[in-house]
Design a binder for these strands. Structure first.
Lengths: 99, 99
DNA sequence: ATCTTTGTTCGTATTTTTACGAATAACGAA
DNA sequence: TTCGTTATTCGTAAAAATACGAACAAAGAT
């Protein structure tokens, strides 16, 4: 017998997005990508005071959450926002945060 | 000698807000508070499938992040959104997520 | 085929988050 | 003062997040 579920799918989905945004480094990455169309891991690595492997992890988190996407352009990988989900997030948080 | 800081204060601040929103339970609480003016911990406790102490922890996180505020109304505590910061968050995420 | 460049994955350590029940605190009511 | 109600704090355990360097993978250049 399953407990009545009080948390909606939307609440879960947008908690997930928020969680992905919930780290300064990831916020920086998203901010950067929202201002220029795309960038490479190396561009970020040059400027961010963290190990490359750590940066990769953050990029993976953002990708897994659906906020960015990566396209191989060997030997580089070009990262861009996932525009579709980004839009979805915008619509939700706009409504959520108020009128 | 201090490294040049690449992460802005805004990125840190709004990463903090996002982090607070980054859990389904906390998303539920914020959603509830955004739809009705206020509520008591007990109201939430009745409906959420978690221990009261866990709920208290989540409320504390939201309070520490500045997204809600609690007012004693003994022996209860009335929780409401922190409207000022809520507004600040709205403005930021609106700009951040796009035009 | 080997080297170089670009990033990721692996292994691991540390810190933080999440969760619970028991104990405690605050305060009004009896 | 003692009791009941409402929540928080404490102590603790388990899971997840964060970070690093070393090892590895992929593909173009030599």
């Amino acid at each position: 017998m399953k407990l009545r579920e009080v948390i909606t799918e939307d609440q879960k989905k947008f908690a997930r997005y928020a969680k992905a945004m919930g780290h300064p480094i990831r916020m920086y990455i998203l901010d950067t990508l929202s201002k220029q169309s795309c960038c490479y891991s190396g561009d970020l690595s040059e400027v961010l005071p963290i190990a490359k492997s750590t940066l990769s992890q953050h990029l993976k988190e953002l990708k897994d959450a659906g906020l960015i996407q990566g396209e191989t352009e060997a030997p580089k990988i070009k990262y861009c926002l996932n525009r579709e989900n980004w839009k979805e997030a915008r619509n939700f948080y706009q409504k959520f945060l108020g009128d």
